[in-house]
Amino acid sequence: MLIGVEPEISIRVAGELLMFLPAARRVAVNRVPFDGTSTLGHLVESLGVPLPEAGPMTIGGAAADPSTRPEAGDEVHVAAVPRPQPVPLEPGQAAPSFLLDVHLGTLARRMRLLGLDTAYHNDMDDPALVVQANAERRVLLTQDRGLLRRRALWFGAYVRGSRADDQLRDLLDRFAPVLRPWTRCTACNGTLVPVDKHEVEGALRDGTRRTYDIYGRCADCGQVYWRGAHGDRLEEIVRESTRLVASVRGDGHPRAAVSET
Rank of each mutant, 00 (worst) to 15 (best):
M1V: 14
G4P: 02
E8H: 15
I9T: 12
V13I: 15
E16D: 01
L17V: 01
L17F: 01
M19S: 15
F20Y: 02
F20S: 04
P22S: 10
P22Y: 02
R25Q: 12
R25Y: 02
R26Y: 01
V27N: 14
V29M: 06
R31D: 01
R31Y: 05
V32Y: 03
D35Q: 02
G36D: 03
T37I: 07
L40S: 09
G41M: 13
E45T: 15
P50S: 05
E53C: 11
M57D: 10
T58R: 15
A62K: 14
A64P: 08
P70I: 09
E75T: 12
H77K: 13
Q85K: 13
Q85V: 11
P86C: 08
P88L: 11
P88C: 08
L89G: 08
E90V: 12
P91Q: 08
P91H: 10
P91K: 09
G92C: 11
Q93E: 04
A94Y: 00
P96L: 10
S97P: 00
F98R: 04
G105W: 00
G105L: 02
T106H: 14
T106F: 10
R110K: 12
R110S: 09
M111V: 04
M111R: 05
L113C: 06
L114W: 04
A119Q: 07
D126S: 07
D126T: 05
Q132N: 00
A133N: 03
E136N: 09
E136S: 13
R137V: 08
Q143A: 04
D144C: 02
W154P: 00
W154E: 03
G156I: 14
R160V: 12
G161M: 05
L168I: 09
L171P: 12
D173T: 15
D173V: 06
R184C: 12
R184Y: 07
C185R: 05
A187G: 00
G190K: 03
H198W: 09
E201N: 10
E201T: 12
G202S: 08
G202Y: 02
A203T: 13
L204N: 12
L204C: 10
R205K: 15
T208H: 05
R210I: 05
R210F: 02
T211Y: 08
Y212T: 11
Y212L: 07
I214C: 08
R217I: 12
G222V: 04
V224N: 01
R227H: 13
G231Q: 09
G231V: 00
D232P: 10
E236M: 07
E236G: 08
E236T: 00
S241W: 06
A246P: 06
S247P: 05
A256F: 03
V258I: 11
V258R: 08
S259A: 15
E260D: 14
